[in-house]
């Protein structure tokens, strides 16, 4: 007995210590005691004011001096090579992390001053990987608001080009989704996660490189539909493919955490070395010019 206990006790104490470590970690992102309210007359503005960011304990800044404004009715695209900080920029918008320098304003209010719940209600976030939860297609699309109407759900699926494959399923919207969404393909997962973001009818829609799992055809159809259906909303797209962002109102080019260009496709082709390199590697000369027309 004692010999068994002498093995078990130290093990248990190590486990207990590790559990405690988790329990004692304080949430670093908290609502302020007195939170401000959003002003209802300014909607869909995302303003990065000289924002910089570094992870706690890291030596170097991941983002430095990011400065731009995304306006309602406009598409703002963010492009850059892997590791340039594209995803980090959009992760700051729903306040997954707090900026470490500068200010991030949504609808004119600093994100640190408003309740997280209110903030996130305004943002439709589509992550890089289509993450789904076990349940049904319906429960996944209605994830942001279980009380939404079926019409709203169907409309979101329609825009996200998901209706086709949902209707091909026997139980349609009631079709089951396995844990982690393993019973639907990558592209379908992505479309459902886009539908989920659209379903809550947000002011700001953030696509974190959400189109790369889709083929060109679905991609372009989806964007066409999005453009039609989301007029007046603020769209922020992180992209790898130039073709996805060719016609954005504003393109932000990132390189190693710094903004190296800001402007439209044509402007950037003229005055941004990094952007031109990316463009040239993906499209031929004629296509570049053809596409811009």
């Amino acid at each position: 007995m004692i010999s068994i206990i002498s093995i078990m006790l130290p093990r248990a104490s190590v486990s207990a210590r590790r559990i405690n470590e988790v329990l004692e970690t304080e949430a670093s992102i908290k609502d302020k005691e007195e939170t401000k309210k959003f002003v209802e007359d300014k909607k869909g503005y995302v303003e990065f004011k000289n924002v910089s960011f570094r992870y706690p304990d890291a030596d170097t800044e991941i983002l430095e001096d990011i400065d731009f404004t995304a306006k309602p009715g406009e598409t703002t695209a963010i492009i850059g090579s892997t590791g340039s900080g594209k995803s980090t920029v959009v992760n700051l918008i729903p306040r997954f992390y707090d900026v470490t320098g500068g200010e991030l304003l949504i609808d004119g209010v600093n994100v640190k001053d408003v309740p997280q719940k209110e903030l996130r209600k305004r943002i439709g976030f589509v992550p890089q990987k289509g993450v789904l939860f076990s349940g049904t297609i319906e429960s996944n699309i209605k994830y942001g608001d279980a009380s939404m109407s079926d019409e709203q759900m169907k409309k979101a699926a329609e825009i996200a080009q998901a209706t086709d494959f949902i209707e091909r399923k026997e139980k349609q919207f009631k079709s089951e989704i396995a844990q982690g969404g393993n019973n639907v393909s990558g592209g379908q997962k992505q479309r459902l996660s886009i539908a989920r973001a659209l379903a809550i009818d947000p002011e700001i829609i953030v696509f974190d490189d959400s189109f790369s799992a889709l083929d060109f055809k679905t991609d372009s159809k989806l964007r066409e539909e999005l453009a039609k259906q989301t007029k007046g909303k603020t769209i922020i797209i992180v992209a790898q493919r130039i073709s996805t962002i060719l016609n954005a109102d504003q393109i932000i080019v990132l390189n190693e955490g710094k903004m190296v260009g800001k402007g439209t496709h044509e402007e950037l082709l003229k005055n941004c070395e990094e952007y031109r390199e990316i463009a040239e590697s993906q499209l031929s000369k004629e296509e570049l010019e053809g596409g811009a027309n």
Binding site: G73, E74, T75, D215, F216, K217, D219, S220, K221, R223, E224, L226, A227, K228, K231, I235, S243, L246, N247, A248, D249, E287, G290, G291
Partner: peptide, 12 residues
């Protein structure tokens, strides 16, 4: 497929 690559997005 080819043309869809260059479809113009009418954002805004």
């Amino acid at each position: 497929l080819y043309n869809s690559q260059f479809d113009v997005e009418e954002a805004g």
